[in-house]
Simulated scan of single mutants.
Amino acid sequence: MTSERFEVTRQIAATPSVIFDVLRSPQGHVRIDSSGMLQSAEGAPVGAVGDEFLVHMDREALGDLPMGRYDVTVIITRYERDAVLEWTISGTIQPPTRHLYGYRLEPNESGTAVTSYYDWSEIDDKYREAGIFPVIPEAGLRATLGILARTVE
């Protein structure tokens, strides 16, 4: 693990398929978000690398930057049905920040081990120098996994 990546895992008593259906849904992202930034989403569930959906955000929930409400486009960068979902975003801040979020799902006898990760190792030097990363703390990933568990169990 580098200092520019968080990874947390939680055992969830649900099948990978049930969990993945929440994760690939734009509205599912909003339902399980622990940051308070995701307000609503538009679009169909994703099904392949390159698929996109729109998320209406509110940065005021973090209280760190005065961005207020804005939109981002979620762009799927890895997609393996019931196993891996990864994405980056494009939106108000340009050039795109190139940070990645993702989930890995590993079935086991108790359900599924779900790993959530956040990687900002490829961000533009402009953002690195600004000192605004990581946007989401490691505890935020843990909290989102808790909400995901509550949602599917």
Rank of each mutant, 00 (worst) to 15 (best):
T9C: 08
T9S: 15
Q11I: 05
Q11Y: 12
Q11M: 09
I12G: 02
I12H: 02
I12V: 14
I12P: 01
A13D: 10
P16K: 00
S17D: 14
S17G: 11
V18M: 03
I19R: 00
I19L: 07
F20Y: 12
F20D: 02
D21W: 04
V22T: 14
V22A: 04
V22W: 11
V22G: 06
L23H: 10
S25F: 11
S25T: 06
V30I: 13
V30Y: 11
V30N: 04
R31D: 15
D33G: 05
S34E: 05
Q39V: 15
Q39M: 10
A41L: 01
A41E: 01
E42M: 04
G43R: 08
A44Q: 14
P45E: 05
P45T: 13
V46F: 07
G47T: 15
A48W: 01
A48K: 15
V49D: 09
D51C: 06
E52H: 14
E52K: 15
E52P: 01
V55F: 06
V55R: 03
H56A: 02
M57V: 11
M57I: 12
D58L: 00
D58N: 15
D58P: 09
D58G: 05
R59A: 14
E60K: 12
E60R: 14
E60C: 07
G63K: 02
G63V: 02
D64L: 12
D64S: 14
L65F: 15
P66D: 06
P66L: 00
M67I: 14
M67E: 09
M67F: 15
G68P: 03
G68S: 08
R69S: 12
R69E: 14
D71N: 13
D71Y: 04
V72C: 02
V72Q: 10
T73M: 12
V74G: 02
V74Q: 01
I76R: 13
I76C: 04
T77G: 04
T77Y: 10
Y79K: 00
E80Y: 12
D82A: 08
D82S: 11
W87G: 03
T88Y: 02
I89G: 07
S90Q: 10
G91N: 02
T92K: 10
P95V: 02
P95N: 00
